[in-house]
Each structure stands twice: as C-alpha cells, then as structure tokens.
C-alpha cells in the first residue's frame, strides 16, 4: 500500500517558538494555480508579540561577544547546508528551476558566511579614534540600533530573506521579519534552521501574512527602532516613512533586485542599522617635567 505523506504545517516563529498565529487565520498562496501550503495569516497581535520577543532578546544578543555572534551566523550557514534538500524542494515548489534553486541556496549559505565574518570587524573598520584638540581621548564606535522590522523581499524567498536578516543581526540587532507573502515557505523552514543553530530565541522572529494588513503595525510600533524595507511599492514606502516619524524610526530602503549580485555583500548594509556613539574622556597631562601640573 502506498504510504500517506505527512504534510508540513507552516507556523510562525516568535521568541524561538513556533506558535500558530493568534488570529487562527491562514491563507494559501498559489503557484501555477496550485496552493503550496496553508500559511499563517499573522495579525497585529502577532507583530506585537514578536516585537516584545525581539526587544527582550536584544540586549543579550548585542551583549554577546562579536566573535560569538560571528560563530553563530556561521552556524546558521552550517545548518542550512545540511537542510539543502528541503529548501531545494520548496524553492522548486514556489516555481524555481532546479538549477536556479541550487544557485540560490549556495548563494544564501555564502552570504551568511560573508556577514558572519563582518561581526567582529565592522566596528574595527568603521570606528575611529578622533584627534580632538583638547586633552581628551575621543573615540567613535557603532552600536546596534535595536529592534529592526524587516519587510523582506517579495520575489526572493530565501536569498532575499537572508540578505536582509544577516546584516541586521550581525551587529547585535534583533528583528521581526515579514516574509514574502506569495513565497513564504522558505522563511519558515529558515526559522527552523535558526531554531537549531544557537541563535537565541527572539533574535529573529518571522511572520507570514498580508503586507497590506501588517505594514502599518510595523510602521507604528513605538518599540521598533528601524525598518529595512525590501520591496518596491512607492505607496508602502511613503506610508512607512510617514508612520515612522512618531518615534523617528530609521527607514532603510533597498528595492528588489538581483540578490545574486555581489553588491548585496558589503558592510554598509550592517552600518545602516547601527548608531555611531562617540565617547569622551580626559587624558591626564602631568608630564615628568610637570609642565601642566
């Protein structure tokens, strides 16, 4: 007798756990007129819960040593490598050719490794000791902005997603991600990768659902410090920019493009979600001759 296949239930990812949406709603995106799965239609309250999880994880994640964060990002790549087959089939199910799916998975793994390497270098390269005129030691270094909302690209469910998440978390931010609406499968499978790769719960939270419904809740939330927007709707951009004003969220826009391109690998994407902090401290100037004493 033919064995009955076990179908995967796609849930959302909040605080390291996989709850169903609190709304109980779902939607079924279609590829070539075929539904590809029952996907959680997340609600305003899911956004809220995810932000709470991201906020409570943020100081701990930023507080880890940069080297440790680097190893954790590398670990994500390792685990992803081991799950290639699943991503391969999901990408194909979402309409990708076999060759393109393989290419996308390879690039995704490499991208994680690229950003893993920056974790403990970005402040080294872009920080500075500033030669002020007075007798002070003055240095500038970057700190993570905090909780970042990510509106992940619509057209690239794995590589696009990871290209947005990796630079954000590399520096110690945590994030709440709205996955591609029509191609959400890889995002939840990627959440399963995260859950098994030493990334503390809450560092990455992934929601699936309707952009139109959820965008404003990302934009309005007063405890979201920045938004990384990866789509191309001018209306959505303006909406976000307007909503962001209440708490002066930083809005960064990288409209969709070819994620296989090398330009998605640069440290400036990390710096976009960091704040420059400058610290001053006096330098005592008592010399052997006592000239300023």
């Amino acid at each position: 007798m033919e064995r009955l296949e076990i179908l995967k239930t796609y849930k959302i990812y909040i605080g390291g756990a996989f709850p169903r949406t609190e709304s109980g709603r779902y939607y079924a995106p279609f590829v070539n007129k075929t539904p590809i799965g029952n996907i959680c239609l997340s609600s305003r309250k899911d956004v809220r819960n995810a932000v709470v999880a991201a906020r409570s994880a943020q100081s701990g994640w930023a507080g880890k040593s940069a080297a440790n964060r680097s190893q954790i990002l590398y670990r994500i790549a390792e685990i992803l490598e081991g799950r290639r087959a699943q991503f391969q089939s999901e990408l194909e199910l979402q309409g990708s050719s076999k060759a393109n799916a393989t290419k996308e998975i390879n690039a995704t793994i490499d991208r994680l490794i690229y950003f893993a390497g920056w974790c403990d270098k970005v402040t080294q390269v872009f920080g500075s000791v500033n030669p002020v005129a007075s007798s002070h030691f003055n240095f500038s270094t970057q700190e993570p902005t905090g909780v970042v909302g990510i509106i992940a690209p619509e057209d690239s469910s794995l590589l696009g997603l990871v290209s947005f998440i990796a630079p954000v978390i590399a520096s110690g931010n945590t994030c709440v991600v709205l996955a591609s609406e029509n191609m959400p499968l890889c995002s939840i499978t990627f959440a399963e990768v995260l859950a098994t790769s030493d990334v503390p719960g809450g560092v990455v939270n992934i929601l699936t659902g309707n952009t139109k419904e959820l965008l404003e809740h990302f934009g309005k939330h007063m405890d979201v410090n920045a938004i990384f927007y990866g789509r191309s709707s001018d209306d959505e951009i303006k909406k976000l920019q307007t909503l962001a004003i209440d708490n002066l969220k930083r809005i960064k826009i990288k409209s969709e493009g070819d994620y296989l391109n090398d330009k998605w690998e640069n440290p400036y994407l990390i710096l976009d979600f960091m704040e420059v902090k400058t610290t001053w401290h006096p330098i005592e100037a008592i010399s052997a001759t006592g000239s300023v004493y």
Binding site: V132, H136, T278, T279, W280, H281, P282
Partner: peptide, 12 residues
Amino acid sequence: GVVWANTYNKFD
C-alpha cells in the same frame, strides 16, 4: 550618541 565621561559639553 555622545557620551562624556568625567567631562561634559566638549565639541570638536
């Protein structure tokens, strides 16, 4: 964005 330790309101 600016933290002064053992000093304050310095600019450069």
